[in-house]
């Protein structure tokens, strides 16, 4: 069941389903890009003394990603609460 097309509306066409799946993937990809940009900025110093990630940097990256996803969920929940007629499955208010 998809929240985009639920509620007794006509069945989505093939093109619509493909577009929806594509949009979903692009959204996840964009979210990944943004998390990478933020977490690198916060965790990887830009003096590059070593080519390897050290322990502290690695742990920082791991935690940063966990937190980024948590914030993502939190805001997505809030957005869904504010959007009338929203709700249903999925973690994004698209």
């Amino acid at each position: 069941m998809s929240f985009l097309f639920g509620g007794g509306r006509p069945q989505p066409s093939s093109a619509e389903k493909i577009a929806a799946a594509e949009a979903e993937i692009m959204l996840v990809q964009e979210m990944f890009h943004k998390s990478v940009a933020s977490c690198k900025k916060k965790c990887v110093p830009n003096d590059y003394r070593e080519a390897e990630l050290n322990k502290a940097e690695s742990v920082c990256l791991d935690r940063c990603m966990a937190k980024f996803i948590e914030v993502n969920m939190q805001i997505s929940d809030k957005l869904k609460q504010n959007a009338p007629g929203g709700g249903g499955g999925g973690m994004f208010g698209v």
């Binding site: 990944f32 977490c39 990887v44 590059y48 990630l53 990256l61």
Partner: peptide, 22 residues
């Protein structure tokens, strides 16, 4: 050259965490 290597490794690591959490 260190920057390149480190950036690649950081992206890879973040990608692993992202996949796991997802």
């Amino acid at each position: 050259s260190k920057c390149f290597e480190k950036q690649m490794k950081a992206t890879e690591r973040l990608g692993e965490r992202f996949q796991e959490q997802n």
